[in-house]
């Protein structure tokens, strides 16, 4: 029972964090692509801005892994 709940918790941590990242990357990515159409040299800056929210899902993943190792 406990193991199951922990696994669900770990799944939620990764899944919800992933959703959050996706939502923010959607907006940033769209804007970055738009900016790149105007000026191709903005690729690097666009990439940086787009990957910033990725930290959220990494935290989720790390938490998930830590939870999972307690099973």
């Amino acid at each position: 029972m406990d193991a199951g709940l922990i696994a669900i918790g770990a799944g939620l941590a990764v899944g919800l964090a992933g959703l959050g990242t996706g939502m923010s990357q959607r907006d940033i990515g769209a804007a970055a692509v738009g900016a790149m159409i105007e000026d191709e040299s903005l690729f690097g800056k666009g990439l940086i801005l787009t990957v910033i929210p990725e930290t959220i899902v990494i935290f989720g993943l790390v938490l998930g892994i830590l939870l999972f190792t307690t099973i």
């Binding site: 990725e54 930290t55 990494i58 935290f59 993943l61 790390v62 892994i65």
Partner: peptide
């Protein structure tokens, strides 16, 4: 602090 934690992605990517 967030920056430091951000490096845990090294582990996360390797594990995935």
């Amino acid at each position: 602090f967030g920056n430091i934690m951000s490096y845990t992605r090294l582990t996360a990517v390797a594990l995935s």
